[in-house]
């Protein structure tokens, strides 16, 4: 089973996690920029973080045979802090970097005017840079937040097929799929989704344009949840090809729209007839 985790915050994880992920079949991941638990107080703090996602973290991932890409943005929570908003002005210089495969995580946290502005501005930046967008849906007031997000996407210059709506669940999946966007699900030990509920969603809505991630970070989370979903899918009667579509081909297709996905790591099983070089979006 080859796995692409399309959303995981490796900055918060240990080298043991990298090894366990490799052993479970993870060969590629995308690390979205987000908040760090501790609020930041200046743009410079973001820039050091972005630099780590473009420098040290890919190097660390490579030690374990995992290809690392990232998405960069001002996250919705800190978009409300005027000390942090100048990050929006600096993003153009970061969005041209080779391993940036989307703008993200953007979206809503508390649905404030400042979040409206940051979301619309960053969807526009994605369109200008030929990048897709990873859009986080809010934890609180989720369905209303999702609908407002979809409205903003419709008004933006970015086509829905270049947008991934993330952290979906049973209550938001239908609206998300009707919008034409890609649908992302985060599997957590005790919040968001779990693997069995994920399988039920896949049985109801199919495997097209669906991505599954661990969203593992500094909170209670598990970087092997992608593998657990693959195992649960097989146990529920999905084929290996279905699993490969959800856990590998879909994320490759979505982020491959950036033209910047480079997957030079060998697949764990000879799924591609010995061809170890897979380049997304080409």
């Amino acid at each position: 089973m080859r796995i692409f985790d399309p959303h995981i915050h490796m900055t918060s994880r240990t080298t043991d996690d990298y090894q366990a992920m490799y052993d479970a079949g993870v060969r590629a991941l995308v690390e979205p920029s987000f908040w760090l638990g501790q609020p930041r107080t200046s743009p410079a703090s973001f820039f050091d973080y972005f630099d780590a996602l473009l420098g040290w973290e890919p190097f660390r991932a490579a030690q374990y045979g995992i290809a690392h890409h990232c998405t960069l943005a001002l996250n919705p929570k800190e978009a409300n802090d005027p000390r942090c908003t100048p990050v929006l002005d600096a993003l153009p210089r970061y969005l041209v970097k080779d391993s940036v495969v989307a703008v993200g995580e953007i979206g809503y946290d508390s649905m404030t005017p400042a979040e409206d502005h940051a979301l619309a501005a960053q969807l526009q930046l994605a369109a200008e840079h030929g990048l897709p967008a990873l859009v986080h849906t809010p934890h609180r007031d989720k369905l209303a937040g999702l609908r407002r997000t979809i409205d903003v996407v419709r008004e933006s210059g970015l086509a829905p097929e270049r947008v991934l709506l993330d952290h979906l669940n049973e209550t938001t999946v239908k609206d998300a799929r009707d919008s034409g966007c890609w649908a992302g699900f985060s599997i957590y030990p005790d919040t968001k989704m779990d693997e069995d509920r994920m399988v039920a969603v896949l049985q109801l809505h199919g495997t097209e344009k669906v991505l599954v991630n661990s969203a593992a970070d500094w909170g209670r989370s598990d970087p092997l949840k992608t593998r657990r979903v693959g195992d649960a899918m097989l146990a529920a009667g999905f084929t290996e090809d279905d699993v490969d579509q959800v856990l590998w081909r879909n994320p490759v297709a979505f982020y491959g729209q950036s033209g910047r996905l480079h997957l030079d790591t060998a697949a764990p099983e000879p799924l591609h007839e010995g061809n170890s070089i897979l380049r997304g979006g080409e």
């Binding site: 153009p92 210089r93 041209v96 970097k97 080779d98 033209g259 910047r260």
Partner: peptide, 23 residues
């Protein structure tokens, strides 16, 4: 400044246009 001279944007994008092996 957050502004970037055009040739420096080219510097960042070199691998995508000329191949990572020639970046």
């Amino acid at each position: 400044s957050y502004s970037v001279p055009p040739w420096e944007l080219r510097y960042a994008a070199a691998g995508r246009h000329c191949g990572l092996e020639h970046a």
